Simulated scan of single mutants.
Amino acid sequence: MSSIGVLTFFLRVISEERRGDDGIFISQDKYVADILKKFDFATVFPFALEAFSDSDYAGASFDRKSTTGAEYVAAANCYGHVLWIQNQMLDYGFNFMNTKIYIDNESTICIVKNLVFHSKTKHIEIRHHFIRDSYEKKLIQVIKIHTDHNVADLLTKAFDVSRFNFLIASIGLLNL
Rank of each mutant, 00 (worst) to 15 (best):
S2G: 11
S3T: 12
S3K: 08
L7G: 04
I14G: 07
I14F: 09
S15D: 06
E17K: 00
D22Q: 09
Q28H: 04
Q28G: 10
K30D: 11
A33D: 10
A33K: 08
I35D: 04
L36F: 12
K37C: 12
K37L: 11
K37N: 13
K38M: 14
F39H: 08
A42F: 08
T43R: 10
V44A: 01
V44R: 01
F45V: 09
P46V: 14
P46D: 12
P46C: 12
F47T: 09
F47N: 07
A48H: 04
A51I: 05
D54L: 04
D56I: 11
Y57C: 12
A60Q: 08
T68D: 02
A70K: 03
E71V: 06
E71S: 07
E71T: 03
A76V: 06
N77A: 11
G80A: 13
V82T: 02
I85P: 00
I85S: 04
N87P: 13
Q88S: 12
Q88I: 14
M89K: 02
D91L: 13
Y92S: 05
M97W: 03
N98S: 08
N98Q: 10
K100C: 08
K100P: 14
K100H: 11
I101C: 00
I101A: 00
Y102M: 07
N105P: 04
N105C: 08
S107K: 03
I109T: 01
C110L: 11
I111F: 05
L115T: 14
H118D: 15
T121H: 01
I124N: 01
R127G: 15
H128Q: 07
H128R: 05
F130K: 04
I131W: 09
D133Y: 15
S134Y: 12
E136N: 15
E136A: 15
K138V: 09
L139S: 02
V142K: 00
V142T: 02
H146P: 13
H146G: 12
H146R: 11
V151L: 07
D153A: 01
L154R: 03
T156Y: 14
K157V: 07
A158H: 05
F159K: 04
D160W: 01
R163V: 11
R163L: 07
F164C: 08
F164G: 08
N165L: 15
N165E: 14
N165D: 13
A169S: 07
A169G: 02
G172E: 05
L173S: 12
L174N: 14
